[in-house]
Design a protein around this nucleic acid. Sequence first.
DNA 1: AAAACTACCTGAGTGC
DNA 2: TGCACTCAGGTAGTTT
Length: 270
Amino acid sequence: MPELPEVETTLRGIVPHVIGRKITAVIVRNANLRWKVPADIQTLKGCRIAAARRRGKYLLLETDRGTLLMHLGMSGSLRVIESAAPWRAHDHFALELDGVRQLRLHDPRRFGCVLLLHEDPATHPLLRDLGPEPLGDEFTADYLFQRARGRAAPVKQFIMDSKIVVGVGNIYACESLFLAGIRPTRKAGKVSRAECSRLVAAIRRVLAASIKQGGTTLRDFLREDGEPGYFKQSLRVYDREGQPCKKCGALVKRIVLGQRGTCFCPACQK
DNA sequence: AAAACTACCTGAGTGC
DNA sequence: TGCACTCAGGTAGTTT
């Protein structure tokens, strides 16, 4: 499922195919995504994609008529394919590029979205209140420690809060806490500065390593070229309930935190 | 302000 | 084999 590494992998995959290309058609097969795809999306027909970037798990394609914002939700993926390629079930949206190929959005669960922004993306309600990028300079031990003051929520839910830091979903939250040696259930406000330092380093390390391997394919994520990501083999605790910890051999435990499956090593994580 | 909970949706997996 | 059921996941929005 698309977390930050999967979105980054997708971005890197599509960039060479979309930058500078002319949008020759906008095809909406099913507008009922998380929010209805707006009718004015058609105004993009005829203009060029000037830039493509990522903010958290949002993908942004910039044109001179607005910014196309996309989110892959939990089951979305983008592919660049020839226009003549047959449509699959759950292919909901496409931009035709230079009349020969298409950037197609496939999203069985339809939790993703496609919107057109006319204002500065940074001021849009979906992006306005987002925390710093985990791989950027603003995400530091001091920052995390300060934000955690007075927070009673479990540290796992705290680092999954996009207002604190973007892009840390369920899989990478579990993995990062394992690497940092911190129990997911610990109250965020009780995590020491030194532990915050380890946690920031762990989040950066896990995300960067996953990006290097093209993301994690658990069930349905595929890269823009249709290949799976290979980070699954690097997972240390996620989806490994009852199996031995790769570090100490103790059995990995699974609990539910905030209605999400949470795996950890009861021996390595304090 | 923060925490807890709901809604959205489908495919995969389980148990009968 | 088929049906009924549960579960997974991201995050905006609502309620406590």
